[in-house]
Design a protein around this nucleic acid. Structure first.
Length: 374
DNA sequence: GATCCACGGGAATACACGGATG
DNA sequence: CATCCGTGTATTCCCGTGGATC
């Protein structure tokens, strides 16, 4: 029944984004100066989780980067052989960086041709790299930075200051959830995405499901039900469909209503994007993988959870470190801390940690990566 | 030699509660 | 009655160390 889990992966953005035509127009309008020999104003694309921000921006920047004559694509063989005045477009996912240095490094790496080392170089080297690249020459670039301002990520100022000091010929387009007036910098332009309308979300689901599952595996009214439950959030809707598909019996021809129920139960609300979880450092993901298999007894308190996780063969950290990691993950909103009702009346009451991400999706993608690789 | 980072190991701080104190 | 204190946990914060890379 399942043809391709990737098509249902809430963290993947296959193909063209659907139902966002007018927003795409406005984005292109922001970028217009780049096509006319200039540098676009700074811009900020914002909206709630699951509204299609990443899908839209990755699709757009993929297309623009492919159109870049320097990227070696065959698209431009005859028309423009090498137009040095064309602007370059780069995309950076801030989730894949885990320090302020890491973010600056990723931006520098995306904007230059030669790979920038991850270690052994100081912050000033990054700046030099960019200055060499964009110094005097009339080279221009726009870098999109996705998932900025998330918990555990870095403020807009990190990006703005890094690029501002370098050159006038590099602009940025940030993507995030907070409203513009909650930011520490004021982008020149803003583009807002609102949650998907119910029927549009059904369309999005339908097209993804038709790629990932056999025909009729999920009936239309089931998709409608999932979309309604997800309340405009495409990430959560896909996570439910994904979870339901993993739950369905291997030899089943279609997804049963009870599978959909289990799929829904596997997606906490509010839920943290599974893409964020999957880009955490390997050691953290191992802790989480173990966490979702623990029984209620082991999850009684942070301490007992940490002990149980540290006992696992697949986790190579001391119990004390696991405990600290769990608090870290709670701070990052990857897990939720639930303070227990007082039981013994002695000392501060313990709290439990619960996953705050789609567990079935995470489990499957984590395990798949360890077996199949890539 | 410089630089970044993950770990580990506490130290410091916060909280809950019952009992003592003014 | 309002506070303070002591005890026992929970939670947060900080920094030194060692590996890896340039």
């Amino acid at each position: 029944m399942v043809r391709d889990y990737d098509a249902l992966n809430p963290a993947a953005h296959p193909g063209e984004p659907s139902g966002r035509g007018s927003t795409l127009e406005r984005l292109l309008d922001c970028l217009q100066p780049a096509f006319e020999g200039g540098v676009p104003p700074t811009a900020y694309v914002w909206g709630p989780k699951g509204a299609g921000k990443s899908a839209l921006v990755t699709a757009l920047f993929d297309g623009l980067a492919r159109a870049d004559p320097r990227s070696g694509s065959s698209v431009h063989t005859t028309t423009r052989v090498d137009d040095p005045t064309a602007a370059a477009f780069a995309y950076v996912d801030a989730r894949r960086t885990n320090s302020e240095f890491g973010l600056r490094r990723a931006v520098a790496d995306a904007l230059t041709d030669d790979p920038v080392p991850k270690q052994g170089v100081g912050g000033s080297h990054l700046r030099t790299t960019l200055e060499e690249r964009f110094g005097g020459a009339d080279r221009r670039a726009v870098v999109a930075v996705d998932h900025l301002c998330e918990p555990g990520s870095y403020p807009l100022a990190t990006l703005d200051e890094f690029l501002d000091g370098v050159s006038d010929s590099v602009s940025w387009l940030a993507v995030g959830r907070p409203a513009p007036d909650a930011l520490d910098r004021s982008p020149a332009r803003t583009v807002r995405l609102t949650p998907y309308r119910p029927y549009v979300l059904v369309d999005v689901l339908t097209s993804r499901v038709s790629l990932g599952l056999d025909r009729h595996a999920l009936a239309h009214d089931q998709l409608r039900r999932i979309a309604e439950w997800a309340d405009g959030d495409a990430h959560d809707a896909l996570a439910v469909a994904f979870g339901a598909a993993t739950t369905a019996a291997a030899d089943a021809e279609r997804v049963a209503p009870s599978d959909v129920e289990i799929g829904m139960e596997s997606v906490p609300r509010p839920s943290t994007a599974v893409g964020r979880v999957l880009s955490l450092p390997e050691s953290r993901q191992r802790v989480l993988r173990r966490l979702i298999d623990l029984d209620a007894e082991d999850r009684r308190s942070v301490q007992s959870t940490a002990d149980a996780v540290a006992r696992s063969q697949s986790v190579d950290l001391s119990a004390a470190t696991v405990q600290r990691v769990l608090y870290e993950l709670a701070e990052a909103e990857v897990v939720r801390r639930v303070t227990d009702a007082r039981t013994d009346g002695l000392g501060r009451p313990p709290s439990r940690v619960e996953p705050r991400f789609p567990t079935l999706v995470f489990r499957r993608l984590f395990d798949a990566r360890r077996n199949g690789g890539a």
